[in-house]
């Protein structure tokens, strides 16, 4: 990259990220599974935002989280953090990256060691990142973090994980991530295992941390929570972007046939508004791993055209603020956009 770290306006840039998994097939030989293909994303430094990555299982959203967190190597493309391509980072830069980018995972029951008190979770982070000079400083730091997520008093630190509810455990994970003062938190389905009545508290913490200058990469399959808190949204279908733009625009006016189906399928909590019509999944739904030439939604699309078989659609503009959809139905402009624009 030609830009030096200090000049970059972007916190995180993902350029043409592609991840191919090689599976060993039954009886020898290998099989290539494209989990994510040519994915582009920009997260600006200011102001902090919540960027949602949504999609069904197998859409590549967790693969993206794993790439950003460095849990798996990238096949093609770049992940650029603060102007620095992470593939070329020195060990010191890598450590800084791991400090700046924190994670909160789906399962608040599996991330704790049941033998240690909650205090231990915080002690470990302070020790590993050498965050505090003295015991008193450490105590203040823990207290501040707990207050940010809406927990008060030292009681909670003396408890064991099993004495807390799923919502409390997840908030402690947020507090742990916050204590490192990261720039970005990758939250992979943070509310899907928490009770519906306690979800709001976690979403509220995410909004509060955003207002404190921490950006989020919020990975979810639940459009309604994204709608409540998200700024920018990317809806993935089988490893490619189906539609992206500002969350309100995309969900209020979905353009891609898949996104329309997705938004319509969210059950409405009102018995007077019933699902419209019945839908069928194609029989060969599970045969999805081969890399086809055309649009990946072709087998299920109600508006499919001959053209959709021969080439994959690019992202065509469908609205304001960088609202684009990858569907030939919107191929009415001469110039196609190359990458999604920022909404800010």
């Amino acid at each position: 990259m030609s830009t030096t770290p200090k000049q970059s306006k972007m916190l995180l840039e993902i350029r043409n990220a592609t991840k191919v998994y090689t599976q060993r097939a039954f009886g020898g030989g290998t099989r290539q599974v494209v989990a994510l293909q040519d994915f582009n994303l920009n997260i600006p430094k200011h102001p902090a935002t919540i960027t949602t990555i949504a999609g069904e299982s197998g859409s590549g959203k967790s693969t993206l989280a794993n790439l950003v967190l460095g849990f798996t190597g990238i096949s093609r493309g770049q992940i650029i953090y603060d102007g620095l391509d992470m593939a070329t980072a020195t060990p010191a830069q890598n450590i800084q990256y791991r400090r700046d980018v924190q994670a909160v995972f789906q399962d608040p029951f599996g991330v704790y060691n049941p033998f240690y008190r909650i205090q231990h979770v915080f002690d470990l982070v302070i020790r590993n990142f050498k965050l505090a000079e003295s015991k008193a400083a450490a105590r203040d730091m823990i207290e501040e973090s707990l207050n940010v997520v809406g927990l008060y008093g030292e009681d909670v630190l003396r408890k064991y994980p099993h004495q807390l509810s799923g919502g409390q455990r997840q908030r402690i994970m947020m507090a742990r991530a916050y204590m490192v003062k990261p720039k970005l938190i990758v939250a992979d389905e943070p509310v899907s295992m928490v009770d519906a009545s306690l979800r709001a508290a976690i979403l509220d913490v995410m909004m509060r941390l955003r207002d404190n200058g921490i950006s989020f990469l919020y990975i979810t399959h639940d459009l309604s929570t994204a709608y409540q808190i998200g700024d920018q949204i990317f809806i993935l279908y089988q490893g490619t972007i189906a539609e992206t733009g500002s969350t309100i625009d995309v969900i209020d006016k979905p353009h891609h046939p898949y996104v329309q189906l997705l938004v319509n399928s969210v059950p409405v909590p009102d018995p007077d508004i019933q699902w419209e019509g019945t839908i069928e999944l194609p029989a060969d739904e599970e045969m999805r791993t081969s890399q086809q030439a055309g649009c990946r939604f072709y087998p299920r699309c109600p508006h499919r055209m001959e053209r959709c078989l021969s080439a994959a659609p690019r992202l065509y503009p469908v609205g304001k603020n960088g609202h684009v959809a990858s569907c030939f139905l919107y191929d009415r402009y001469d110039e196609a956009v190359e990458a999604p624009q920022q909404t800010t």
């Binding site: 509810s165 009770d195 709001a200 309100i248 409405v268 909590p269």
Partner: peptide, 16 residues
């Protein structure tokens, strides 16, 4: 506590 897809509302937080 059911999040809506129609309008953005302030989150209603309940302690358990």
């Amino acid at each position: 506590s059911v999040p809506s897809l129609k309008e953005r509302k302030p989150l209603k937080i309940t302690e358990g």
